[in-house]
Design a protein around this nucleic acid. Structure first.
Lengths: 257, 257
DNA sequence: CCGCACCGTTGCGCATGACGCAACGCTAGC
DNA sequence: GCTAGCGTTGCGTCATGCGCAACGGTGCGG
């Protein structure tokens, strides 16, 4: 173990543990993958990947299809998550907020958190319409093209904004914001009005409004959003929906300790 | 790394990863603990415990209270668990026909059967778009207002048609057929062209096309349908989609014993 | 049928990274 | 004030993580 905190203040990590945990993130993104692919993704030999996976599997954090098949995340994660105090706090309160808003607005409500360069949806409650937004729980979405992402950028750590400015913004539809300067303007507007919206920027026909959930000390914790087909959530509804979102988000944040 | 599966057939584990993951289990049981306690629990020195915890924390699987306080399970577990649960849901969906069509057409595909006075959806596979048709598996839908229902009426037992004619047809939207004579005409047209469609008859903005799955002896078994928001499945696409539906439905029916 | 490519697993031995020791600074309790 | 205990961090040793190579299995194409 050759130590020394590297330049950016990161404490020294146990490399083999770091690699094993990185595999979990890859599987969360990909759904499933083989040992050889996972090894390539991490820059390690497939035999190393196989051994790390065997250890993760022994603890139930991954499962393998068949004797020699691909790996996916395992149910042991759900058990561990169930035991976590953090889950009890934000997930319970977040779920209650989602359920309340979905009942009021009869549309899909999501709670998302910032994870690196993505918004990750951790809770979702759907309205009663058949044409709606499909299950996004666990899915990573691009920050610049989603209402949750804009909120997470506007209220979250400046490092996330800086990191995004240093990359080119991917286009998903003709409406996607791909100019960094324009995105900065939009984010300034988000901070001013207290909520964010998207109109067909991630996917044609999909609109959404989001508000920040902040802890009592002012830190951003999550983004609460309502999303729907654009014909049910047109621009002229945004302000009304945002008002409800902000009220529930503020109250949810107040209850977080 | 000295290998050799030990006596009980367990593959060799990467020791440091094993230790780190064991810490997660201890925290799940205990709620929170310090590095010294966790080290004692695992039989390792507290400095080793501290480094393993730092690595788990870098991945969000544990969180520390304050600068030098106790550790507890972290929010990263909730994110990973969410991804895991979503995958388990997806793995339950669909027959071969539903999967094949959804892959081809990239829309929601359902298989429904006739049950008394309703169409009951028994399988569903969704396309990749976020704005789509939510999970209908197990849900009963009205025969006269859904494409599956029209197929089940047109090709199914005449008793179902008679029973429906004896009741008043409920209106769901302005487009719903509520006149029994008109419905009879529509069903005759369905039998003639071999497929059925609905345009906003159950829900505004929801269109669908369906074809019959018949056993080799000609009996109606089920209805195979594709549904989507109307802007993605407008009337001028119905015939093309129906052609694919009928081909897959016919082949599926042929395979039924 | 065969050969080939690719997969995940496993044995092996090397060298590097995980480990324990020791020291440090901080906090809480007396 | 002092003491005890905490988590963190530098250091050097050696044990364990690593990549190489081989194996057996599977799928594909000729």
């Amino acid at each position: 173990m050759r130590n020394g905190a590297d330049g950016d203040g990161q404490p020294p990590l146990v490399q083999s543990v770091d690699r094993a945990l990185a595999m979990l993130s890859v599987l969360a993104d990909r759904g499933s993958a083989g040992a050889t692919d996972l090894g390539a993704e991490l820059g390690v030999h497939k035999s190393t990947a196989s051994r790390l996976l065997a250890t993760l599997e022994a603890h139930g954090l991954v499962e393998q299809r068949g004797e020699r098949g691909t790996y996916r995340l395992g149910f042991g994660l759900v058990r561990l998550a169930g035991a976590s105090a953090a889950q009890l706090d934000l997930s319970r309160l977040g779920r209650a907020a989602c359920e309340r808003l979905a009942a009021e607005l009869d549309e899909t409500v999501n709670l998302a958190v910032l994870d690196g360069d993505s918004a990750v949806n951790i809770s979702q409650v759907q309205g009663s319409a058949s044409v709606g937004v499909l299950n996004w729980v666990g899915r990573r979405t691009p920050l610049h093209a989603t209402s949750s992402g804009k909120v997470l950028l506007a209220y979250g750590p400046s490092a996330a904004r800086a990191a995004l400015s240093a990359t080119s913004l991917e286009r998903y539809t003709p409406a996607t914001i791909t100019d960094a300067a324009l995105l900065d303007e939009v984010l300034a507007g988000v901070r001013e009005q207290g909520w964010a919206a998207t109109e067909g920027e991630l996917e044609l026909g999909l609109n959404a409004v989001a508000a920040p959930v902040c802890a009592p000390d002012g830190r951003l914790v999550a983004a609460l959003s309502v999303s729907a087909p654009s014909y049910r959530l047109p621009r002229d509804r945004f302000a009304d929906v945002a008002e409800r979102l902000c009220a529930v988000a503020t109250e949810t944040g107040r209850q977080l300790g």
